[in-house]
Nucleic acid binder design. Structure first.
Lengths: 156, 156
DNA sequence: CTCATTCGTTGGTAACTACCAATGATTGGA
DNA sequence: TCCAATCATTGGTAGTTACCAACGAATGAG
């Protein structure tokens, strides 16, 4: 029996937080590998998502949406521009600002990234039936919203 | 309305892998903070769990159980020994080896860590009813086992 | 016009994760 | 006895994430 993976300690498997982190890390790693095959890293995808959803957007604002420091946005934006996935132009009405836009090529590669995410998700949810998939999706979003709303802090 | 957290892009929220990663990261951060209040980092807890579950264990084997490089185990073990949470003795039958054991103080601090995990878990699951909690726990472990068994690789 | 503020940018720090090569002490097999 | 393998250890590299201070260019308020 191909037991390639080292078994964890029972004491760790009892900790939901540990299991959750471990699961997320493994899946994220998979997806990151898939993204890499498209020449994308995770930040590329995140920024492309923001540009796709929020039309032309000021570089600083895009960073704020992702919780990224303005100084760290510089290279991220530059990467996308260099790859031809994003356009960067001075805001005519405020020449300090850069307006970032997604290019057609950017939309295309982002679509491919979405499809990769779907494939990884499918592989993850493979052992689940339709009902369980819906429960999982529902619980996942519920908990995510709960945590992001800050309620978690209040309860601790 | 305290909207302190920047809203994510819809395109990112549609990606389960992203949501999962984000959720796990936030919860893990919380727990890491709690651990820090006990003077513990995440590796301390993980190693203590291994020592608790697998009696006296060879340092290298403990590392293997956690997927940690032998060279990286050195400092982790040293930290626990210095804190009085673990004992480290040469294996009488093979003096190359170190046998790591958890001390009573180690068991105690690990128990406290477990309680912290429970508190963070409780805060996370606060919006869920009893039924949903069981569903969540069940799905979480099912998916974790699925991923760790390597089935995910095969399906991609 | 002056001045405080904003924006992008440069450059730096710190912690963490994940490797890898080499070495001395020790072991066990040939 | 000799030699290959094992174990802990040292020291090194590389990538990621998350900060922070400072600066020039540009803006807008007064």
């Amino acid at each position: 029996m191909g037991m390639t993976v080292p078994p964890f300690s029972q004491s760790l498997l009892e900790q939901d937080v540990f299991v959750l982190s471990n699961l997320a890390l493994a899946v994220r790693r998979r997806l990151t590998e898939r993204f890499a095959e498209l020449g994308l890293n995770r930040w590329d995808v995140a920024v492309l998502a923001v540009l796709t959803d929020h039309g032309p957007i000021v570089q600083r604002a895009a960073g704020a949406l992702l919780g990224v420091d303005p100084s760290d946005m510089v290279d991220m934006a530059e990467r996308l521009v260099a790859a031809g996935w994003a356009g960067r132009e001075r805001d005519p009405s405020d020449r300090r600002r850069y307006l970032l836009t997604v290019t057609p090529e950017g939309r295309e590669v982002f679509e491919r990234a979405r499809r990769e995410e779907l494939r990884v998700r499918e592989a993850l949810l493979a052992p689940l039936g339709e009902e369980d998939r819906e429960r999982w999706a529902s619980l996942l979003r519920l908990l995510h919203g709960h945590v992001r709303s800050g309620s978690l802090d209040a309860l601790l």
